[in-house]
Amino acid sequence: MNKVLVCIDGSQYSQSCCEYAGWAASELGAAIEVVYVTDLRQFEVPFIADLSGSLGLQPYQSIMGELQSLEDRKAKIILEQGVGSIRKSGFEGEISTSHKTGFLVDSLSELEQDSELIVVGKRGENANFAAEHLGSTMERVVRAAERPCLVSSRSFQKVEKVLFAYQNVESCHAAIAYLKDTRLFANVELHLASVARNDDESDTLADLKKAEAELKSAGIEVVCQMLHGIVPQALARYAQESGIDMLIMGAYGHSRIRHLIIGSTTTEILRDCRLPTLLFR
């Protein structure tokens, strides 16, 4: 695995995606692949479908051809801008670009094969119209990906302090294994924290100490802290008070059906936290 895969779509989040990809690839000594996926749904909206009936088949085909040509030009411009943003971030390594047609999640298994990390924006091109909602593509990518996913914030900031929000669950165990094996955070101050409820404080503390010991046994120094309260608010408060630049956590520990019925802690943290977040499944 010698590549950072960065997924962009022309939104303002794409700029920070590229800058975080440049930072990560520089730390890892990896190449970068920038991918733009043309969403087929834009050619299937009722307005387009109605044109075939009102204008006839021949003009409809001509219009579709023009739309596809414009989309190809848009993709080329977005990819060129992405490469430019990565170069401006100081990355000097290899960069490749890909333009796919379809749905990003369908191309993911192929794209992520040689990747150590996937970078994706928290929201997409319609972010300004749905400021309080996360991008559905982002969630689908995180749920489908086999690699860790770095969900970028709206703007890039230098990564000097990282907070690992730990729970004794499989996804966090995967994060510990990654931290023990990666160079990505070699130059940052790592904070390790768990949020306890009143009824499980002793168990939470014991789990936290085990995680701390495992990281320290691998030569990773951590600032360890147990927090109290509601998880998203407790983490956000600690991040702000400690000057944290990035969050690490497990992602979507339950099914999408359960998520739809009672919500998701992952979604709540991503929505309320303005930090880039590295997610593990």
Rank of each mutant, 00 (worst) to 15 (best):
S11C: 03
Q157C: 10
K74V: 08
F156M: 05
N2P: 08
F47C: 00
Q157S: 13
A186N: 13
G56P: 06
Y36K: 02
C7G: 09
C7F: 10
G253F: 01
Q42L: 12
I248C: 01
S14L: 10
V83G: 02
A145H: 05
Y36E: 07
S85W: 14
V151S: 03
K100R: 15
L205V: 03
I262Y: 11
S152G: 08
C18F: 02
E221G: 04
G84H: 08
L111K: 12
G82T: 05
G53H: 14
E241N: 13
D114W: 00
Q12C: 10
V105S: 11
L227P: 00
A24N: 08
R258N: 00
E170A: 11
P59S: 00
T137N: 15
H99C: 13
A213W: 06
Q233I: 03
E116V: 05
T277D: 07
T267W: 05
R271I: 07
V34P: 00
G93N: 09
A130K: 14
E132I: 13
A144Y: 02
E170M: 01
V159S: 09
R143I: 02
K122M: 10
M249C: 04
I77S: 13
L108A: 04
C18T: 03
E268L: 02
V195A: 06
N187E: 10
G229D: 01
V195H: 06
Q61A: 02
S62Y: 00
L104P: 09
G253W: 08
C273H: 11
I176V: 15
E170I: 06
L270A: 04
S69L: 10
E116F: 05
P148V: 04
Q113R: 15
D199S: 12
F185P: 09
E189I: 04
I118W: 07
E19S: 11
A49T: 10
Y166D: 06
L5F: 00
E160V: 03
I269M: 14
C149Y: 00
L111H: 10
H228V: 08
N2A: 07
T265I: 13
G22A: 12
S264A: 06
